[in-house]
Structure formats: C-alpha cells, structure tokens
Amino acid sequence: MQTIEWGFLIVNYLFLGGLSAGIYFVSALATYLQEDGQPAYPRIARYGAMIAPWPVALGSFLLIFDLGNWYRFYKLFIHFKWQSPMSIGSWLLLVFTGVSFLYFWAWLPEEARKALFAKVPKRLAFLNRFDVDLSGWRRFLGMLGFPFSIGVGIYTGVLLGAVQSRPFWNTNLVAQMFLFSALSTGTAALILALSVNRKELDFKQLRFLYTLDICFITIEFFIVLPYLIHGKLSVLAVQDALKLILGGPYTFVFWVVFMLLGLLLPLGIELWEMAPAFLQKSAVHHNKRLASGAALLVLMGGYVLRYVFVYAGQVSAFK
C-alpha cells in the first residue's frame, strides 16, 4: 500500500540540518581565511558560530519526535549500520552537533561567558569547571568541522538518493543538489543576519557572502538542470517519476516557487547587488531590503526543494 510516511517534520529536519551545515561551513571558512593573523571576516565567523548549532539541534529533535518510538532513538547509537544512510547520518549529526557547539563555545565572547557563569548557583559550583576559554581553538575547530558540515549537507540528500525503490530520488545528483542547497541556505542565513543587524552594512563581508552564494546557487542550478535532463532521458520509471514535477501535482511548487522564486530570483538580486563590485572596483549596492529579501527567498527555496523531494519522492515508484 503506497502511503506518505515522511511528512513535514522530516522536511523541516532535512532543511534545518542542511541550514546548520551551510552556516557552519561559511563561518568556518570565514575563520580560516585570515588577514594578518586575524580572521578576514570576523563578523561572519562569529554570527555563524553563534547560529550554527541551533537549527541542527532543533532538527534532530524533530526527527526524534517523528519516530514511532521516540524514546528508542538511542538505539540509533548502539548500532552502526554502514549500509544505512540513516545510521551513518545519525552518527554524522551527533559529531557535527558536538563540534558545532564547541565551535560556538570558542566564539562565545568572554563577557557573555562570564555573565553566563555568574548565574551559576553555589550548589552547582562544579559547573564552573566548564568556564574555559577555547577562543584559541577557533581556527582548529572550524577546520575540524569542515568535513562534518559537508557530510551533514550531503547526508540530507543521500538519505533520499540512496533509496533505489524511489526513482524520483535514486539518481546520483540528489546528494549534491541538497549539499549546495544547504550551503546556499546557510550563506543566505548569514546575509540575513548581517543585513538585519542594526549597524550599517559591512561591504567587505557582505561581498564575500554574495560571492559565495552566487557560486552555490549557480552550481545548484547546474545540478538541478542535468537532474531533469538525465531524468527525461532515463528509464521509464524515472521518466514517470519526473512527471510529478513536469505536469504532475508538484509542478507549480517546483518550477514557480522553487526554481523561479527560490533560485533564479535571489540569484538575480544578488548579481544586481554585486554588479558595481564586478564592474568598477567599488562597493556593492547596499540595499538592506534587497539583501534580506534575497536571503529569505533562498531560505524559502531551500525549504520548498526539500518539501517537493520528500513528498514527490515517496509517491514515485516502479511499475
């Protein structure tokens, strides 16, 4: 009996996992790139570090919540099944979440940390032992986290792609599609963070984010395209599966909401923002609304992409 077993909780989970991965990746990159001993893009790095752990933590919580027996989730971690994307993924998530919290700690401003521990009541004095300064480890932690962030980004795609019974998913492009969508949503989140921030925009850092996002979106676009082309040229089952977004129930969401509004439009906006920087070596247009608008669209697009794949994929099947 064909049933939709994975619903919005899973969509959210895939989205949030990817989001954290993206944010972490960009932030770690920003930490890694240095100018005379200092992170080249400190604010990106800090914001990223501050935000990164939370979406994935929430996502994992949602996943567990979706289980038929949530209290058995620990069983994920007493077995390791190397053939099961979900098993690998769970471990990845675990490590990644851990690292990203350390990284968060490392970036947590001195005073914030102190303020935090000031609140610790006498009885729990021992907690103060955790009042350690990891700021020296930022770069190391950032680099340590790279592979895991990418891993998590890919995993969200592999989880679906590795299911040979669902032709809509079972192509070697879904993993990459989800990875770059993740990176781009992460970048967008940071653009948002930077632009909603009260202080006037920091051109240098914004330009960096735009550049990254334009790359990510373009690559994502050039993954989605061959995904469609290959699909159309593939075996019947895959062609039928694609009908779901080529005339089928998910056509509008995919083409208008995702492709147009979630991918091409923000790309356009970001290019326009960057235009001056491309043409004459001057700053970007600095239009907060446009910036945050583009970012929101990217986030929305990333979410819709996962929605379409989770739902349409489950409906697709071999005849």
Partner: peptide, 9 residues
C-alpha cells in the same frame, strides 16, 4: 524498531 519508517519508503 524506532519507527522511523525508512524501510517502508
């Protein structure tokens, strides 16, 4: 069985 339903899919 944790009820993830991955097997069903």
């Amino acid at each position: 069985c944790i009820g993830c339903r991955y097997c069903m899919i």
